[in-house]
């Protein structure tokens, strides 16, 4: 099957992301890349656990003083929902329904932006209210590095999806761009999974001690 070929919903292959050799390679390569990313985040998690609440003097805020679960709950819901909408988007991609795929991806992006806004507010809040900063303590460095790496991944994913949507808006689906959309969605799921761990390890475990 050629990347440039034109399709109808009837002739569109079942797994368009893996229908060409390029697609197959990208699919596998990206999974392996996510494996490496997992190790990267595992390292940051380990560092965070080792440095949690490690502050130079008692007047610094600790995890249990800082975190507010209602905000984090909203963030979690936004991101989890965005993962679901990206699944819908891929569902329509596999059915060769370009418009609906774009629509659901747009919703994914909007939810992601909502998450990002909350995270900016959260960081700003810690900076101004509690003087909990990147440089104030080892705890601060580890916290902002872990959540910041995740946030940077969110930004990267959002830019990626927006560019894909804009670039392909006028020309519909092909076997050349189907793997690209699929990988962006895979990346988005990965970001979501990392957040589930951040929610558990940083916020929930932060509240219980």
């Amino acid at each position: 099957m050629q990347a440039e070929e034109k399709f109808t919903p009837q002739t569109w292959p079942e797994s368009p992301e893996k229908a060409t050799l390029e697609g197959k390679n990208k699919f596998l390569g990206f999974w392996l890349f996510l494996g490496g990313e997992t190790v990267l985040f595992a390292s940051l998690f380990a560092t965070y656990i080792a440095l949690k609440d490690k502050v130079p003097s008692p007047d610094h805020m600790l995890a249990k003083d800082l975190f507010e679960l209602p905000l984090v709950f909203v963030m979690t819901m936004l991101l989890l929902t965005s993962s679901l909408t990206s699944v819908y988007s891929m569902y329509h991609m596999k059915n060769y329904n370009f418009k609906k795929m774009q629509l659901w991806m747009l919703i994914t992006v909007i939810l992601g932006l909502g998450f990002l806004a909350c995270e900016f507010y959260e960081f700003h809040h810690y900076y101004t209210e509690y003087n909990h900063t990147f440089t104030s303590s080892a705890f601060g460095s580890a916290f902002y590095t872990l959540t910041g790496f995740h946030g940077a991944h969110v930004i990267f994913g959002l830019v990626w999806m927006i560019l894909l949507m804009v670039r392909n808006a006028g020309r519909g689906l092909s076997l050349y761009n189907a793997p690209k959309f699929y990988l962006a969605s895979l990346y988005w799921h990965f970001i979501d999974v990392v957040w589930v761990f951040i929610f558990t390890v940083v916020y929930l475990m932060g509240m219980v001690g």
Binding site: L51, K54, P56, T135, S137, A138, F139, T145
Partner: peptide
């Protein structure tokens, strides 16, 4: 200005 390895600021 981070403090991962700066023992004085809680690092290790």
């Amino acid at each position: 200005g981070a403090n991962f390895f700066n023992v004085a600021a809680g690092g290790n």
